[in-house]
Nucleic acid binder design. Structure first.
Length: 848
RNA sequence: GCCCUCGUGGUGAAAUUGGUAGACACAAAGGACUUAAAAUCCUUGCCCUUUUGGGAGUGCCAGUUCGAGUCUGGCCGAGGGCACCA
C-alpha cells in the first residue's frame, strides 16, 4: 500500500487552487451571497496558533457554504500600520515598510500552507497608499459632516520617548518601553464624535441576534447609559458664581443632600488658581489618578471652598461646596450633589469630613426608625424624611416624580447621560495613516484639498529621533495650499481607524475613485459571519459599528445599519508553561519526559523542570508552538483537524503534542481505509449486504454534521468523523455492495472536505470525481430507525432496554415488557399504578 | 465593589435542549502480535459481589417533576469584563 504523502498531496492541491483561482468571488446577483470574515492579522513576523485556529474555523464555514451553493466572499488582508514596525525598524535600522512587507510575504506563504479557501485577489494592506488614501478621504468627509473635531485633552505622555502612549502601554504608571514615569499632559488631539451615536449604538445591539451576549453586555456597559436629571444649585459666596449644574440619577434623595463636590478641572477652579493649598490639593489628586489600583483603594479627599450651595427643594438648607478627587470632569457636568446615606462614595467622603448623613430611603423590610450608619444604602425602598416626597417608592416612582416636580419649578430637567467618550485618533508616530489636515500661520485648520490626496508618508526618514519622526521632516511638513503657506498635521491616525472599515474595502478592493462602490456594498454587506478574538469585544467592534454609521450619516448610503450580522469569538490556544530551577521560562522543545509525569531538561535528566499551569501561548512565557513546524511535520490537514478537535471553538483549547500525533495518525488511517475501499470497489459483484445500514448511517451523519456546523460545535464534528471511520472500518470487514458504497463514500468525503480538504480532494480525484461536490441532502426516510431502543424505568430508575419496532404503542410495549424476564424481576404487572410513555424513547412505570 | 460566564471521570470534552450520563479523543494499567523495539489491535477504568447483578454518581444544599447534568432558589469555587460614571 502506498504511504500517504501529505507533503506532496497538500502542495499539489494548494497549487491547483492557486492556479485555478478556485476561491475567486464575483458579484452575482442571481446567487445568494455569504460573506465570511475573520479578523485580519497584524503582520508581526510569523503566524501563531491563534491565527491557525481563527482561520481554520472560518475556512470550515466558508468551504461548507461554498458546497451548499452560496456565493462566498472569504478575503484576507493585513492590519499593517502600528508601533511594532516602527520599533523593529528603529532597532534594526530598516524601513518600517520593508519590515512590514517582508512579514506579509512570510505570513501569506504560511497561510497558504494551511490550505485556506481565501480569495487572494482581494488581498489588502492598510499601509499601502491604495488603502489609506480612501481613509483620508473618509476623514475629510467626516470632518465636513461635523463628526471630527480637534480639542485639548489629557494624554499619557512618555517624557523619555516623547510620545503619547495608549492606556495599555502604561504599565504600573511607567512607559512600557522607556520605563519612564508617565505624565498627564494636555495636547491638541483629533477626535471622532462617536458619542453622538451613543443611543444608536445601544439600540443597534438589540438587532444583533447572533452576537454573543457577553460582547453585547460589554458594549452596553461601555456605552453606559444612565437616566436622571440635571439640577441647578443656587450658590452663595464671595465669588461671582450664581449657580452650579449637576447631573444625578437619584434626584429623589435630594433631602439627603449634604455637600456639593466639584472636579478639580471644573471651571470654578480658575478662581482658586492662586491658592497655594488648592494647588497642593490638585497635585495630590493627579498623583492618585494614574493606576487603576490606586483608584480602587484610593481615599476620597476634598478641598473645602468658601461657597455654599442651597437645596433646591428645601431652600433653608445650605451645604458646603468642595473640590473632590473622585469627581470627573468629562462625565456629567463635573459636579456632583452628595447624598452620603445612599451613595457609598459620598458616604466615605462625608465620614472623613464629618458631614451630615441623613437617611431618606427606608428598605421595605426595615423599621420606620431605620438609619444608615455603617455603609450607604443604595437599594430600593420608601422615601422618608423628605417632606412632600415621603412615601414614594424608590427608586422607580420617586425619581420620575421628583424630576416632574423639579421641571415644574424650573429647577432642573430630565436628562440621559452616556459614559462613552469621543474617540481620540491622534498618534504622535510615523508608521500610520497621515491625517489630511494642515494649519495656516494663525493655527487655523486647513483641510488638504481632495486633489492633493493622498498625503503620502515620506520615505527614507530618520527614525532615530526622539518623538514623532514626522515632526522633524520640514520639507514634508511645509507645503502650499491655494498659494498659502501651511504646515501639515504631523500626527497619524490610530490604527483602529484602519480596521474600522476594511470589511467594506474587501467588497471593492481594486476600486480607485472611492473606498468602495455602492453596488458591491449593497450585494456583499453585511458580513454574514465575523470571527475573531474576544479581546476586540469593545474597541474594534464598537469603532467598526460607529464607522458604518458615520459614513452613512446624513446621506443614508447603506442598506444595512450594522456591519457584522453574526459574531463568533473563539477561545485562545494554551500550552503548559515550564520553568527551570532558576525561574527561567523554558520552551516545550527544551523539555523532556520519560513517563509524562516528571519533566526534565532535554538531554539533562538531572535538571528538573517545574511544570506551570496551561496558559495562553505567548512569547514571553516561551510556551508557543510554531504552526509552520507542525505543518511540516504532520501536514496541514492534521493540524486543522487537531486545532478543532479537542474543545468547542468558543472555549480555550490546550495544545497537546499527543493530540496532534493522533490527528496525524487518523489521516493515515483514513488513507488506509480509502485504499481498502478502492479495492472493494473493484469488485463489481452486487452484494446488498449492509446497504441499508450504510445509507442510514450516512444520512444520519449528514443530519448531525449540519446541526453541529450551524452551532459551531466543530469539536463534535470531529468526533462524528472518528465515529464514521469506526463504523465504515467495521463494515468493510464484510462483503459490501460496491455501487452503494461508492455513493455513500463520496458523500462522506464531501462532508469531511471542509476540515481536511487536501485529503478529500485527493481521494475524490482517485475516485474520478470532482473535488467540489454538492453538499449531500438528507433523506428523511433514513433518519428514523425501524428498530428502536426503549428505556424502561421503574419508579424513575432505569431497569432495562427493550428493542422493538418503532412506533410501538403503550399496550404492546407492556406486552413486550411482560415477556422480558429481567424486567419482570422488578415488578408485578398487576401493581402498576401509572405509566409515562414517551414514544420510541422511554417508559416509566410507577409501582404501588 | 459592580456586571457577565462557567463548574460533568486522571485530562480535553459529548449528551437530539426535561427522557439510557460520560459519545469521541488524550493519558494510564493489563494483554495480543514481534527475538526485541516501533507501529498496530484488544481489554479495563467509582463502591459492593468470584460472575450474574446491585448501589452511588454531573461543585454543595434544598425545591419543582413520573423523571433534573439540563428548570427554580440559596451557598461554595473558578474565569472574564469594568473602574470613583454621580
Amino acid at each position: 500500500m502506498i504511504r500517504y504523502n501529505f507533503k506532496e498531496i497538500e502542495n499539489k492541491w494548494q497549487l491547483f487552487w492557486n492556479k485555478n483561482k478556485s476561491f475567486k468571488s464575483k458579484l452575482d446577483k442571481k446567487k445568494n451571497k455569504f460573506y465570511c470574515l475573520e479578523m485580519f492579522p497584524y503582520p508581526s513576523g510569523k503566524i501563531h496558533m491563534g491565527h491557525v485556529r481563527n482561520y481554520t474555523i472560518g475556512d470550515v464555514l466558508s468551504r461548507y457554504k461554498i458546497l451548499t451553493g452560496f456565493n462566498v466572499l472569504h478575503p484576507m488582508g493585513w492590519d499593517a500600520f502600528g508601533m511594532p514596525a516602527e520599533n523593529a525598524a528603529r532597532e534594526n535600522k530598516l524601513d518600517p515598510k520593508d519590515w512590514t512587507n517582508k512579514n506579509i510575504y512570510t505570513m501569506k506563504t504560511q497561510l497558504k500552507k494551511l490550505g485556506l479557501s481565501i480569495d487572494w485577489d482581494r488581498e489588502i494592506s492598510t499601509c499601502s497608499e491604495d488603502y489609506y488614501k480612501h481613509q483620508q478621504l473618509f476623514f475629510l468627509e467626516l470632518f465636513e459632516k461635523g463628526l471630527v473635531y480637534r480639542k485639548e485633552n489629557y494624554v499619557n505622555w512618555d517624557p523619555v520617548d516623547e510620545t503619547v502612549l495608549a492606556n495599555e502601554q502604561v504599565i504600573e504608571g511607567r512607559g512600557w518601553r522607556s520605563g519612564a514615569l508617565v505624565e498627564r499632559k494636555k495636547l491638541n488631539q483629533w477626535f471622532f464624535n462617536i458619542s453622538k451615536f451613543s443611543q444608536e449604538l445601544l439600540d443597534g445591539l438589540e438587532t444583533l441576534k447572533s452576537w454573543p451576549n457577553k460582547v453585547k453586555t460589554m458594549q452596553k456597559n461601555w456605552i453606559g447609559k444612565s437616566f436622571g436629571c440635571e439640577i441647578d444649585f443656587i450658590i452663595e459666596g464671595k465669588l461671582p458664581i450664581k449657580k452650579i449644574k449637576c447631573f444625578t440619577t437619584r434626584p429623589d434623595t435630594l433631602f439627603g443632600f449634604s455637600f456639593l463636590a466639584l472636579s478639580v478641572d471644573h471651571e470654578i477652579s480658575k478662581f482658586y488658581e492662586d491658592n497655594k493649598d488648592f494647588k497642593l490639593f490638585k497635585n495630590e489628586c493627579s498623583k492618585t489618578g494614574t493606576t487603576e489600583e490606586a483608584i480602587a483603594v484610593g481615599e476620597k479627599i476634598g478641598f473645602k471652598t468658601d461657597l455654599i450651595a442651597i437645596n433646591p427643594l428645601n431652600p433653608t438648607q445650605k451645604v458646603p461646596v468642595y473640590f473632590a478627587n473622585f469627581v470627573l470632569m468629562d462625565y456629567g457636568f463635573g459636579a456632583v450633589f452628595g447624598c452620603p446615606a445612599h451613595d457609598q462614595r459620598d458616604f466615605e467622603f462625608a465620614k472623613k469630613y464629618k458631614l451630615k448623613i441623613k437617611t431618606v430611603v427606608r428598605p421595605h423590610d426595615e423599621e420606620e426608625t431605620f438609619e444608615v450608619n455603617e455603609e450607604a444604602y443604595p437599594g430600593a425602598g420608601v422615601l422618608i424624611n423628605s417632606d412632600f416626597l415621603n412615601g414614594l417608592e424608590a427608586p422607580e416612582k420617586s425619581v420620575i416624580e421628583t424630576i416632574n416636580i423639579l421641571e415644574k419649578k424650573k429647577l432642573g430637567k430630565k436628562q440621559i447621560n452616556y459614559r462613552l467618550k469621543d474617540w481620540g485618533v491622534s498618534r504622535q508616530r510615523y508608521w500610520g495613516c497621515p491625517i489630511p489636515i494642515a494649519y495656516d500661520e494663525n493655527g487655523k485648520t486647513v483641510p488638504i484639498p481632495r486633489s492633493m490626496l493622498p498625503v503620502k508618508l515620506p520615505e527614507n526618514i530618520n527614525l532615530g529621533v526622539k518623538g514623532n519622526p514626522l515632526d522633524s521632516q520640514n520639507d514634508w511638513k511645509k507645503i502650499i495650499i491655494n498659494g498659502k503657506k501651511v504646515t501639515r498635521e504631523t500626527d497619524t491616525l490610530d490604527t483602529f481607524v484602519c480596521s474600522s472599515w476594511y470589511y467594506l474595502r474587501f467588497c471593492s478592493p481594486k476600486e480607485k475613485q472611492y473606498g468602495y462602490t455602492k453596488e458591491e456594498i449593497d450585494y456583499w454587506m453585511p458580513v454574514d459571519q465575523y470571527i475573531g478574538g474576544v479581546e476586540h469585544a469593545i474597541l474594534h467592534l464598537l469603532y467598526s459599528r460607529f464607522f458604518m454609521k458615520a459614513l452613512g450619516y446624513k446621506n443614508n448610503e447603506f442598506n444595512v445599519d450594522e456591519p457584522f450580522k453574526s459574531l463568533f469569538t473563539q477561545g485562545m490556544v494554551c500550552h503548559e508553561t515550564y520553568k527551570d530551577n532558576n525561574n527561567n521560562w523554558l520552551s516545550p522543545e527544551e523539555v523532556d519526559s520519560n513517563d509524562g509525569k516528571k519533566y526534565f531538561k532535554k538531554n539533562k535528566p538531572d535538571e528538573k523542570i517545574i511544570v506551570g499551569p496551561s496558559e495562553s501561548m505567548s512569547k514571553s512565557k516561551k510556551n508557543t508552538i510554531d504552526p509552520e513546524e507542525m505543518i511540516n511535520n504532520y501536514g496541514a490537514d492534521a493540524v486543522r483537524l487537531f486545532i478543532l478537535s479537542d474543545s468547542p471553538p468558543a472555549k480555550d483549547v490546550q495544545w497537546s503534542e499527543q493530540g496532534m500525533i493522533s490527528s496525524y495518525k487518523f489521516i493515515n488511517k483514513l488513507w488506509n481505509m480509502h485504499n481498502l475501499i478502492m479495492e472493494k470497489l473493484k469488485d463489481n459483484e452486487e452484494n446488498k449486504n449492509f446497504s441499508e445500514d450504510i445509507n442510514k448511517y450516512t444520512n444520519q451523519l449528514v443530519d448531525k454534521i449540519n446541526f453541529n456546523l450551524e452551532k459551531f460545535n466543530y469539536n463534535v464534528i470531529i468526533a462524528n468523523l472518528y465515529q464514521t471511520y469506526n463504523f465504515l472500518n467495521e463494515k468493510l470487514k464484510y462483503k459490501i455492495d460496491a455501487k452503494n458504497l461508492k455513493k455513500n463514500y463520496i458523500k462522506i468525503l464531501t462532508i469531511m472536505s471542509p476540515v481536511i480538504p487536501h485529503f478529500t480532494s485527493e481521494c475524490l480525484e482517485i475516485l474520478g470525481e470532482n473535488q467540489f461536490q454538492n453538499w449531500p441532502k438528507v433523506n428523511n426516510k433514513y433518519l428514523e430507525n425501524e428498530i428502536v431502543n426503549i428505556v424502561i424505568q421503574i419508579n424513575g430508575k432505569k431497569r432495562g432496554v427493550i428493542n422493538v419496532n418503532k412506533d410501538i404503542n403503550e399496550s404492546n410495549l407492556i406486552k413486550e415488557i411482560k415477556k422480558d424476564d429481567k424486567l419482570n424481576k422488578f415488578f408485578d404487572v398487576n401493581k402498576i399504578s401509572k405509566t409515562f410513555f414517551v414514544k420510541n424513547r422511554l417508559m416509566n412505570i410507577l409501582i404501588k
